[in-house]
Design a protein around this nucleic acid. Structure first.
Lengths: 145, 145
DNA sequence: CTATTTTCAGACATCACAGTCTGAAATTGG
DNA sequence: CCAATTTCAGACTGTGATGTCTGAAAATAG
């Protein structure tokens, strides 16, 4: 099992792509799906979710597309993950036990809680701006290959 | 998305349960599924996988059931995960990009690689014996509630 | 040998995620 | 107004993980 769902992977890649071309006003979903090599219609649904959540703004018609709703430096990975992913990786028990916590821990609770905290910190502290800058400077790819 | 699949969660809980009752020679799958509160038939399939992989030995007939194939101190969480889980969480790209690695990293590669290493260490260094001991000593539960 | 208990094996059903398709609504440009 | 472009909306299908069911095979006890 991957850490993130396909939907979340695509959402992150799409947002990073948009951020990495901040010269453009709106970036069309068709361009994004072509560049990322993913299904146009599927990506459309995912980006609509981000639009409804207010992370992205969209515009219809020629020259339209999507753009970030706020500066990339104020959007974190966690913002995207929470908007798309439903199950909460950062609070649930690694053995899937309901009610696992400090009071009634599962045998792995302590160790998993530590790892989970580190992961959460990474997602909360990393901004789209930082990664998009990384992409532009080092010419990193957002597609397979 | 959870970190582990349901199958892997059940496998870990079942193995921990068996290890925590090391007085018994064989523990029947019926007893395990009752104690864990999971489907008997589903758990049977998962334990058969562990049997085929050589982590567990089984015996049919009255008084039969499953037992650990080697001392719990020589079975790690990683052993179980690798036997049940197919996709490899500990080597794949967090954005799902094929060919992501040190040479052609995705923008998140560095950060994810660090977290991933910590996770892998936890799974590789933690033995069933340690956790089962934890369960027995502190009377921890392996079922919901 | 017979009946019971248990794992083994595989078919089948169910469900969520992933992906496809068609058409409506909005916007632009001529 | 008209045609083209693009997002929005939702129905539909495919696929793999999850879960259920039935019966065979092995072992035990009487």
């Amino acid at each position: 099992m991957g850490l993130l769902s396909k939907s979340t992977e695509y959402a992150l890649r799409a947002v990073l792509y948009v951020a990495s071309r901040k010269d453009a006003k709106y970036v069309s979903i068709r361009e994004i799906s072509d560049e990322l090599g993913v299904s146009f219609h599927f990506l459309t649904k995912i980006l609509q979710r981000l639009t409804r959540k207010g992370l992205v703004v969209s515009y219809r018609g020629p020259g339209g597309g999507v753009a970030l709703a706020r500066p990339a430096g104020r959007i974190t990975l966690m913002d995207i993950v929470e908007a798309v992913e439903e199950s909460d990786l950062f609070t649930s028990c690694i053995l899937g036990l309901a009610g696992c916590g400090e009071k009634k821990p599962c045998p792995l609770h302590g160790q998993w809680a530590r790892e989970r905290t580190g992961l959460g910190k990474m997602f909360r502290q990393t901004t789209i701006a930082k990664l998009a800058g990384h992409v532009v400077r080092d010419k990193l790819r957002l597609a397979d290959g």
